[in-house]
């Protein structure tokens, strides 16, 4: 048996592709792509989808490394202090990188420490109830919630998360009071709704697409209807200026030299604008974004202002 496994080792050696050297000076070696979440999560899936084409565009190997912990704060804290040489990039999520420094004591990074290369994808958040629920439309939901304050249990995943913020904004805009049930992830949240243990959930579009046969999605936070959810109205259609969502992008430490950052930015933008990639993420229920570095920075700055206001209103801002 030992011999057999040694044979496998030999095979494995042969399969290891040699390091390709790019034409220009950068990159000279492999680039590490840090995922601040567990393998198998959406950020991981995105990175894996980008990996082959990124390797082609940059002419080097991309190593995907997982640093899950503290809802991403662990990776971002370490990454903000990483060597700014362009050989490590890190996935970023909005609002996570905005909310954590504002509200968590141990999240030792600042939003501006992470320089976004691009924001490639957005996951709209929608409000859904179980199929067979007596609530059929957003209006019925709001009316019921107004008549019975605190009676509707709504599942969110994670406190101070995109879902939580969406819920706070929704309550404010509609003058309702909901009982928030905070689950530890999207899977238990969906299970609880399907099993009838809670009334409604704030769900990511990708999950809502998966479960559309078992749930009634009342409204979704996009500007136009989604192709994958053609029968679901947007909040905007229903008269609310409300676009809850989670955005994903990729960043380098803020002191990374501009020319290297520009090179990475281009490679990423080329990758995420490829047709095949766009088709895959659209089918899975996401919305392509394709913001470049400058646009992404502006976007993050605007969102930061918005969220700071919201946190102050609910007294959730970290007192320093």
């Amino acid at each position: 048996m030992k011999k057999i496994s040694l044979c496998w080792l030999a095979v494995a050696f042969l399969l290891v592709p040699g390091l390709a050297i790019g034409a220009a000076d950068f990159p000279k070696g492999p680039i590490t792509y840090i995922i601040p979440f567990n393998p198998g999560g959406q950020s991981d899936v995105e990175a894996r989808l980008q990996q082959p084409s990124l390797e082609k565009n940059l002419g080097t190997k991309i190593i995907v490394e997982y640093k899950p912990g503290a809802g991403g704060a662990l990776a971002w804290t370490q990454f903000s202090k990483a060597k700014p040489d362009g050989y490590t990039v890190c996935g970023i999520n909005i609002p996570h990188i905005i909310l954590q420094p504002l509200s968590q004591k141990d999240a030792a990074f600042k939003t501006v420490d992470l320089k976004p290369l691009c924001i490639f994808e957005s996951t709209p958040i929608g409000l859904a109830v179980k199929k067979g629920s007596k609530i059929n439309t957003l209006k019925e939901f709001i009316d019921f919630a107004k008549a019975n304050p605190g009676k509707i249990t709504v599942g969110i995943s994670g406190k101070l998360s995109g879902h939580h913020m969406a819920s706070l904004q929704f309550e404010k805009k509609t003058g309702t009071k909901l009982t928030l049930v905070t689950f530890t992830g999207a899977a238990p949240q969906a299970t609880a709704l399907l099993g009838g243990h809670i009334e409604a959930i704030w769900g990511n579009s990708s999950d809502l697409v998966s479960y559309q046969n078992d749930m009634k999605v009342l409204a979704i936070g996009t500007e136009k209807r989604m192709d994958t959810l053609p029968d679901v109205p947007t909040f905007q259609e229903l008269g609310m200026k409300f676009y809850p969502r989670i955005d994903r992008g990729v960043a380098v430490p803020k002191d990374t030299p501009a020319d290297i950052a520009a090179k990475l930015e281009k490679a990423f933008l080329d990758t995420v604008n490829e047709k095949e990639y766009l088709a895959k993420i659209t089918k899975a229920g996401f919305v392509a974004m394709g913001l470049n570095s400058r646009e992404a920075m502006k976007y993050i700055a605007e969102e930061t202002e918005e969220y700071t206001k919201l946190l102050v209103e609910h007294d959730l801002l970290l007192k320093k």
Partner: peptide, 9 residues
């Protein structure tokens, strides 16, 4: 085993 075969970092 760990570096060449299983590719751990």
């Amino acid at each position: 085993i760990f570096i060449n075969f299983l590719r751990t970092q």
